[in-house]
Amino acid sequence: MKNKLFWPLVTLAVLLLANLIHNHDFFSITIQDGHLFGSLIDILNRAAPLVLISIGMTFVIATKGIDLSVGSVVSITGAMACLIISKGDGSSMSVLFTALGISLLLALAAGAWNGLLVSLLGIQPIVATLILMVAGRGVAQLITDGQILTISSKPYSFIGAGYLFGLPFSIYIIAFFFIIASVLTRKTAVGLFIESVGTNPTASRLAGIRSGLIIFIVYVLCSFLSGISGFILSSNVSSADGNNAGLWYELDAILAVVIGGNSLNGGRFYLSGTIVGALIIQTLTTSIYSMGVPPEVTLVVKSVVVLVVCLIQSEAFGSVFAARRRKRDKAAKQGVSA
């Protein structure tokens, strides 16, 4: 555990330090109108949707799966919630809860669809979730009728843009789900079940674990969390955009999970690693903005980070260098003896 968290934490620390050197006020937090303001708070706030999705993605990847449809689910729930609120009274709580409830049901249905394809029909996760990734954007555009839906609802915008006790409300949401997820996976057997299914589904089934059910639940959970991120994202800007909401989130989430030290081959997972991974990605984005580098470079930087992290994780990389060193040592010895 120590080992796995080491590199992600070092990366995060280096990023934060680089920011501190560039901007000495980076760590300062000020109080304005009773709210805490500062770059660190901003990073936490902006990372919230990604953190939530990444928690779900960690479970999926731990079962040796992958969920490409998270971005589409984000846009579907955001669109549905905004649609219902725009039809009703924006300030009424009952409208808000109807909107949230129906949208979450949609997210659960999306997750159930993915889960059924993977667990019951045995389709490869990449392909199974690809279907919803393609079709889901179409569904989201269908809901918003291809327009960008703008709403004005105080209670809804509180989710993504509100403050509670001086901190952005979204931070409480991620804290809540992180604690629930950690307790659920580390204090009960569920975490162990997920890891065993990811390591060897057949053996787990023979040991009495209902592998199919676990895989199904994991996909439902991932969609559920993506749905909640959909609320945070759309309420933050008080609008729903079927085309662009949650775009590239599937990639960022996978990236966060991988950077956090989780293996794409399933098995052991580290929730805290994932959180650090998501924070690294957000810090990277924020620092690129604050350092005045064109934001488009983010993509290049991200790709380099993914490759480097994957290379460090890959055994082949290590062994190639070990072999080369051995060869060099050998050659040196021969050179000496000759």
Partner: peptide, 13 residues
């Protein structure tokens, strides 16, 4: 999957 994903980011960037 992951290598070409990185390639995708890189080329767009």
């Amino acid at each position: 999957f992951i290598v070409t994903l990185a390639g995708m980011f890189l080329a767009r960037g």
